[in-house]
Simulated assay, not measured.
Amino acid sequence: MKVLLVDDSGVMRKIIARSLSSLWIDEVVEAGDGVEALKAFGDGNGFDLVLTDWNMPNMNGLELVQAIRSAGHKVPIMMITTETEKTQVVKAIQAGVNDYLVKPFDQDMLQMKLTRVLPNPEAV
């Protein structure tokens, strides 16, 4: 399974990547903002899942989601963020996010959310 992990915090990327690794996700490509993520994403680049933060420089997570969806890609996308306001959650869902995980989170919560968004949840 190949995951695109987008967060401007290198520490947070390491924490999430470590969690994904313990869930047998074998390939994680990291990006520090939406611009880097779009370059890595290319024409889909074989990603099975995109995990993105909301608040980032250059291109935020919501703009990234909109760019991926407007290009016609159906890859599951999960927003992992500190944004908890209902209006923010609604915006993310309207933009095409498949699920939403609020920081801080634990391993069990991440695994539960992944099983909801992945087409093959038994892989997690």
Rank of each mutant, 00 (worst) to 15 (best):
M56V: 10
D53A: 05
K74Y: 04
N98P: 10
D99P: 02
D99A: 06
K113P: 03
L4F: 07
P57A: 07
T87A: 11
A37E: 09
M78H: 04
P57H: 13
W54S: 07
K39V: 15
N120Y: 13
E27L: 01
S19L: 03
A40W: 05
P104A: 15
S19Q: 15
W24I: 04
A17V: 01
V75I: 12
T84H: 10
M12Q: 14
G46H: 08
E122Q: 12
L110K: 02
G46F: 12
V6C: 06
S9W: 14
L4Y: 07
R116F: 07
R69V: 07
M79W: 09
P121S: 08
L62G: 08
V65N: 11
D48W: 01
A67K: 12
A31K: 07
L110F: 01
N60I: 00
M78E: 05
H73Y: 15
R18G: 02
G46E: 12
E36G: 02
A67S: 15
G32W: 05
N55A: 06
K2T: 09
N60D: 15
D43P: 13
V89Q: 13
A67M: 09
V65H: 06
Q66I: 15
M78R: 02
I15A: 02
K14I: 10
A17I: 00
S21N: 08
W24R: 15
K2C: 07
R116N: 05
D33C: 09
S70H: 11
M59L: 11
V90D: 09
L4E: 04
